[in-house]
Nucleic acid binder design. Structure first.
Length: 553
RNA sequence: GCCUUCGUAGCUCAGUGGAUAGAGCACCGGCCUCCGAAGCCGGUGGCGCAGGUUCGAGUCCUGCCGAGGGCACCA
């Protein structure tokens, strides 16, 4: 990548200047480059002179001059300038820039891929909402972030597995079963109330109806008796099928749906992990319960693993689950994506990973702030236990998967976001995602037109691409590898929509200023080549976000 | 009370410690006899408050104000 090469030029300039006595000897900090906000400041800017002015005991501007005198030559760099108060600005050679059009096309679908994660087995676990109800809008945010991150990490060479953790054990399943049974009995004209703290949503009635339609009265027991656990299992499996379908509508697909219950099988991860904790002295008995002695590991408090009634907690399952991820299945790295309401859970799970023989630092927990759902000015509650549930399916069918994904990905995970359903509906024509997709469709249209007219990009001389708008566009194309690297290192997916918008902007500006198909066969050919490269990069960017790149719209 | 995330344009949000803080929507004014006007060009308008660190702070630190989320033998 050109940025890395310029970084090296700067580092070497420091050494050369020191060797020549133009700078005193000292250990220089790592080179930091940035993209100046203004084109007249060049393509890459190094702030090295200002950062080492103290070490050099010279004025920054003098350091900059000394460095410039010792910067090596590079075919891509046409000029290096010093700018006050001490920047070292690098200007890319326009002909080199133009030539990159061919380099991008040659890279094809692998463009912007890298090897940051080569040889690493990585898991991304996300959404993992309780199977006691449909996935809602907030889950959609985690879904968009998780699947996009998986795509990008895959482009960085990681062997990525995507997983959904199904909480099919624990008390909420019992409550789910009792609620379902109440609804089921109601369908047989029994007068039964759904339990206190049950799930009042209409979807429970629908599931009960489906089960009745499919299996009749086989789950009906004499009045007053407890429900058949098999009814609960049947309901849960139907709920999971619906969740899988709803997420599929958003373009989210998993490699594995991991059952929490499976952890507790004899000889399974639960037994093994608890055994390790005990043998390592991380377990204490107190007040009739079994605790993870996490305060000994620097945590603010201990955490209950097994309640005094003998039931394991959700946390105990999570310890076993993460044991299975790292030790059982040997992932080198795991990324869990959780809603911000699980923030308090992060450090104890990391501590547990270390305690069962892994390394808590290999676990990244990405928290996204919750989504506030609104209809106009009215806030809509998301709770599964409230009356109105706005499901992910509702939203996707209203605004489409592409717009929904783009919308979810745009704000950084750390910012709360407002999802205005009324606005989202109106946005069908005005949504920013169409701006990006339109650029792609527009290119497809011009390429088709060129093909009809017999214009070809074969044997194009891309060095003709010297117009400002062409140069700006190609420079933008060259940024995608940097964006991918940034997303991988920061785990922040919101840089992608931001990049997509700026790339599209550059394309639309080019399109307005430069006519592609003209009488000038050589220039036409070169510009068609540029369109091909741009189309490829747009499709690549959209593909990473899981958004379609339409040929027409 | 403690922990944590956030506070940037009328609204929704970007902004890797740099040089004149951006985009979309909204609003105002221009641009199609020519490849898709779902577009382009221009304009109005902003860093919650106060200190500190730094050559340089929207960005880092502290305090205050305001908002969200945590602080269970719930998940």
């Amino acid at each position: 990548m050109i940025r890395d090469e310029i970084q090296l030029l700067v580092a070497q300039a420091v050494e050369a200047a020191q060797a020549a006595g133009a700078l005193p000897a000292f250990a220089a900090p790592e080179v930091h480059l940035e993209h100046p906000g203004r084109p007249e400041h060049g393509d890459y800017s190094a702030n090295m002179p200002m950062r080492i002015q103290g070490l050099a005991r010279m004025k920054a501007i003098e350091v900059a001059e000394a460095l410039r005198a010792h910067v090596g030559t590079h075919p891509a760099v046409s000029e290096v300038r010093v700018a006050p108060p001490g920047f070292l600005n690098f200007y890319l050679d326009p002909t080199w820039v133009a030539s990159q059009t061919e380099v991008i096309i040659a890279a094809g679908e692998g463009y912007a891929s890298n090897t940051m994660g080569t040889g690493q087995k990585l898991q991304v676990e996300y959404v993992s909402a309780n199977p006691t109800g449909p996935v809602h809008v907030g889950n959609g945010r985690g879904a968009a972030i998780g699947s996009t991150l998986a795509n990008v990490l895959g482009a960085a060479g990681y062997k990525v597995e995507q997983e959904y953790y199904v909480n099919d054990a624990g008390t909420q399943i019992a409550v789910f079963t009792r609620t379902l049974y109440a609804r089921y009995q109601q369908l047989f004209d029994r007068t039964v109330e759904i339990p206190e703290n049950g799930y009042p949503g209409e979807y429970m009635v629908e599931i009960a109806q489906e089960i009745k339609d499919a299996e009749g009265d086989r789950y009906l027991r004499p009045e007053g008796e407890e429900p058949d656990p098999a009814l609960g299992n049947e309901g849960i499996s139907r709920m999971i099928a619906q969740i899988r379908e709803d997420l599929g509508l958003l373009g989210v697909h998993y490699n594995r749906w991991f059952s929490e219950r499976s952890l507790q099988e004899p000889g399974g991860a639960y037994e093994t992990a608890m055994g390790i904790l005990k043998s390592q002295g991380h377990v204490i008995e107190r007040e009739g319960a079994t605790w993870f002695a996490s305060s000994q590991l620097g945590e603010s408090k201990d955490n209950v693993l097994i309640r005094s009634d003998g039931q394991p907690t959700y946390f105990a399952s999570d310890v076993a689950y993460h044991y299975d991820k790292f030790i059982g299945r040997g992932f080198n790295r795991v990324i869990d994506i959780w809603g911000a309401d699980h923030q308090g859970h992060v450090s104890r799970v990391k501590a547990a990973v270390t305690a069962v023989g892994g390394n808590g630092d290999d676990l990244d927990v990405l928290l996204y702030q919750l989504v506030t759902l609104k209809r106009g000015d009215v806030v809509v509650p998301l709770s599964k236990r409230a009356g109105e549930i706005v499901t992910l399916r509702d939203v996707v069918s209203e605004v489409g998967a592409d717009a929904a994904r783009y919308f979810f990905l745009t704000p950084s995970a750390g910012s709360t976001m407002e999802f205005d359903l009324d606005l989202a509906k109106q946005q069908s024509d005005e949504n920013p995602v169409f701006y990006v997709q339109y650029a792609h469709a527009r290119i497809a249209s011009v390429l088709a037109r060129a093909a009809e007219q017999g214009s070809s990009s074969a044997s194009a001389d891309v060095s003709l691409l010297q117009h400002d708008a062409e140069q700006t566009l190609i420079r933008r194309l060259l940024l995608l590898p940097e964006v991918v690297e940034l997303v991988v290192s920061s785990l922040e997916t919101h840089h992608l929509p931001s990049y997509a918008a700026s790339l599209s902007q550059s394309f639309h500006a080019f399109y307005t200023q430069c006519r592609v198909i003209t009488e000038d066969a050589a220039l036409t050919s070169a510009r068609l080549r540029l369109l091909e490269a741009t189309k490829l990069v747009l499709a690549r960017t959209l593909g990473l976000m899981g958004i379609s790149a339409p040929e027409q719209m």
